[in-house]
Write a protein that binds this DNA or RNA. Structure first.
Length: 263
DNA sequence: GCGACAG
DNA sequence: ATCTTGTCGC
């Protein structure tokens, strides 16, 4: 199911409205300290889906200690998913349930609240400079960093031979190069996050963080190619799906009456 | 018009 | 995102 032109326009308007609240610079003291002194908790979020079932997903939020990267908190929830995935509008599918997860954490374990959140997907590296990492950041007011595993074609950026060659030029773990769009703006950085994987990461600003800090922090969180907070959320959410393939969605109090007479 | 397109 | 086992290599 593709999104109608009208739906896309509504989504674009919403993105433009929220885009105005994005902060692209470091706003936290620890972000300017050597070795990120003062940083103790890094969060990660991810959703996993099972094969045939497009209607539900497992939403996972983890908080890891820094710099040890040990799991301090985890929140797992089977959630109904109604919005389809449309490139450029991922946030409308995944952000609502992630916001709820963050709110549960803030209410139940406020002392474990993450000081920064790594998000699966892009931030400013987006057609309207407002990817899921920006969206989640603005709605939660948490510093957020976008970490994508594939390049989203935007502002003239494409995964052509030149790009592949630039990626090949990243020899050592930690090396990176900027992604400058046709507009001249630097929308993100391509980072080789691990010595054993030639596939890079696409890091971009989400909210309340500078691009340089974002890349440095992602580097510091990588035991393997995928930064540990996102990797743990990913591993644990799939593991949950594997064990609870048919777990029922928590029934709402009055779900009968509104099942058939809608429009 | 066709293809490309985060998760 | 998901479907999929073993296997080659450091």
């Amino acid at each position: 199911m593709a999104a109608s032109p009208a739906q896309r326009r509504r989504w674009e308007r919403e993105q433009a409205r929220l885009r105005a609240s994005v902060l692209e610079e470091d706003t936290e003291p620890w972000q300017k300290q050597p070795q990120f002194a003062g940083l103790h908790r890094v969060g990660g979020v991810d959703l996993s889906y099972s094969k045939g079932d497009e209607s539900r997903a497992c939403a996972f939020l983890v908080v890891l200690s820094y710099p040890d990267l040990e799991v301090l908190y985890q929140d797992c929830r089977m959630v109904p998913v109604t919005t389809p995935y449309v490139a450029g509008f991922l946030a409308f599918r995944e952000v609502p349930v992630l916001v709820e997860a963050v709110q549960r954490l803030q209410q139940e374990e406020p002392q474990l609240q993450p000081q920064v959140l790594l998000v699966d997907g892009n931030g400013l590296l987006h057609p309207r400079e407002f990817g899921i990492a920006c969206h989640l950041g603005v709605l939660t007011d948490l510093p957020c960093i976008g970490v994508a595993k594939n390049l989203l074609h935007v502002d003239g950026l494409v995964r052509d031979e030149l790009h592949k060659e630039q990626v090949r030029s990243l020899q050592r773990s930690g090396e990176a190069f900027p992604l400058t769009g046709t507009s001249g703006k630097v929308l993100g950085m391509v980072l080789r996050s691990h010595s054993n994987s030639s596939r890079p990461l696409y890091v971009s600003v989400g909210h309340r963080v500078s691009l340089g800090t974002a890349v440095s922090l992602v580097r510091a969180c990588c035991r393997f190619r995928i930064p540990e907070p996102i990797r743990q959320a990913d591993i644990r959410s799939r593991e949950y799906l594997r064990r609870q393939p048919c777990a029922p969605v928590p029934a709402s109090p009055q779900s009968k009456s509104e099942t058939e007479s809608e429009d």
